[in-house]
Amino acid sequence: MLQITYFYDSVKIDVDNIVKPIQDAIIGLAYVDDDQVTDVLVRKRNLSGNFTVENMTSTLAEGFARGNEFLHIVVIDDPDQEVLT
């Protein structure tokens, strides 16, 4: 499963245009082929927006500290394939 969050400043990209290039770019790094990805969660958040980050990792904190737009990508085990929520 891919979890992608695009933190933007002024220019925002449609979320549906974010996924495919990222999936292709991490072939060989996170998985053998992007057909292994069963689930994707994509979000975009304005860096000036009102949101809270729970359980912030050091990598995510570094992204915020730089002050520029960035992508936060997490590859995790897929959820239970027999249960849809």
Rank of each mutant, 00 (worst) to 15 (best):
T5W: 01
E82K: 14
G67C: 07
G49R: 05
I27S: 08
H72L: 11
D16R: 11
K12R: 14
L29Y: 09
D14N: 10
R45M: 13
R43D: 11
L2T: 00
A65C: 09
D34V: 03
T52W: 08
T85A: 03
G49E: 12
S10K: 15
I13D: 03
D77Q: 09
F7H: 05
Q3S: 13
D35Y: 11
V11C: 10
E69L: 09
T52V: 14
V42N: 01
Y8R: 08
N50Y: 15
I18V: 12
I4S: 06
I26P: 00
S58A: 14
L41Y: 01
M1A: 13
N55G: 05
L60V: 09
V15F: 08
P21Y: 02
N17S: 11
N68H: 12
L41A: 12
V83T: 15
L60P: 06
G63N: 07
G28E: 01
N55W: 02
M1Y: 03
I73R: 01
N17T: 01
T57S: 15
T59Q: 06
V40T: 15
Q3R: 08
V83C: 07
N50S: 10
R66W: 08
D16W: 03
A61P: 06
N50R: 14
V32D: 06
V15W: 04
I22F: 01
N68I: 09
L47S: 07
Y8L: 10
D14E: 14
I18W: 05
M56R: 05
V53I: 15
P21E: 00
Q3I: 13
D80Q: 04
S48T: 10
V53S: 04
V75E: 04
N55E: 11
P79V: 14
K44H: 13
V75R: 11
D34K: 11
S48M: 11
Q3K: 13
V42W: 06
F70Q: 06
D16I: 03
Q23T: 08
F51V: 11
I13H: 01
L2I: 12
Y31V: 06
Y8H: 12
I22P: 00
F51M: 13
Y6N: 13
D77M: 04
Q3E: 08
V11A: 15
H72Y: 15
V32M: 04
L71E: 02
R45A: 09
Q81T: 06
V75N: 05
T57E: 03
T5Y: 00
L2R: 01
V37S: 02
D33Y: 00
A30G: 02
I27Q: 13
Q3T: 14
D34N: 10
M56G: 09
N68L: 13
Q36W: 11
T59N: 10
R66C: 07
V37E: 01
I4V: 14
S58N: 10
I73L: 14
H72C: 10
V15A: 13
I27T: 12
D16T: 08
V74C: 04
L71N: 03
M56C: 10
R43G: 01
Y31G: 00
V74A: 05
T38I: 07
A25Q: 07
D33F: 02
D78V: 10
Y8P: 00
L41Q: 06
A30I: 00
V74F: 00
D80T: 09
I18R: 02
H72D: 13
V32K: 07
A61I: 08
E82A: 15
Q3G: 07
P79A: 12
M56A: 15
M56F: 03
S58T: 14
D35F: 11
E62I: 07
